[in-house]
Simulated scan of single mutants.
Amino acid sequence: MNQDISAERMELLRLRARIAVLERASMAALELALRLRPEELAQVVEVGRKEMALGYQEELFTAGLHSDAERQFVASEAERLIRSLQAQLGFPGGVSSPEVG
């Protein structure tokens, strides 16, 4: 364990690294699917977007969200990020986000 980094900060950094790795792996899988079956991929992404938008607003969808405000925030972030992904992939309904540049 690194003595210069607190345990709490180290856990946050681990989660950040995990997200970065999952994002890269997901993009690689999406790029492969885009080459093999682009029409089906567009549909799968859109269905997933709709499911997440509705799901995060339900109290039992995820255990870590404690209030309606948290659920609404995560639902809107998921919506924004999936719309950004759709834009990156050139799919209908996509909206560019500031993170992409």
Rank of each mutant, 00 (worst) to 15 (best):
N2K: 02
I5Q: 07
A7I: 04
M10T: 05
L12D: 13
A17G: 01
R18P: 01
R18L: 14
I19K: 11
E23R: 15
R24P: 00
R24D: 02
A25S: 12
A25K: 12
M27D: 08
M27F: 03
A28C: 00
A29N: 07
L30F: 14
E31F: 09
A33I: 03
L34C: 00
L36F: 03
L36Q: 05
A42E: 13
Q43V: 04
V44C: 04
V44T: 08
G48E: 03
R49H: 15
R49T: 02
M52E: 13
A53W: 10
L54Y: 13
G55W: 01
Y56H: 10
Q57S: 03
E58V: 08
E59P: 01
E59H: 12
L60I: 09
L60V: 08
L60S: 15
L60M: 06
F61E: 02
F61V: 05
A63F: 08
G64W: 11
G64Y: 12
G64P: 01
H66C: 02
S67I: 05
S67D: 07
E70D: 15
R71E: 04
Q72D: 12
E77Y: 10
L81D: 12
S84W: 09
S84Y: 01
L85T: 15
L85V: 13
P92L: 10
G93N: 03
S96C: 06
V100Y: 09
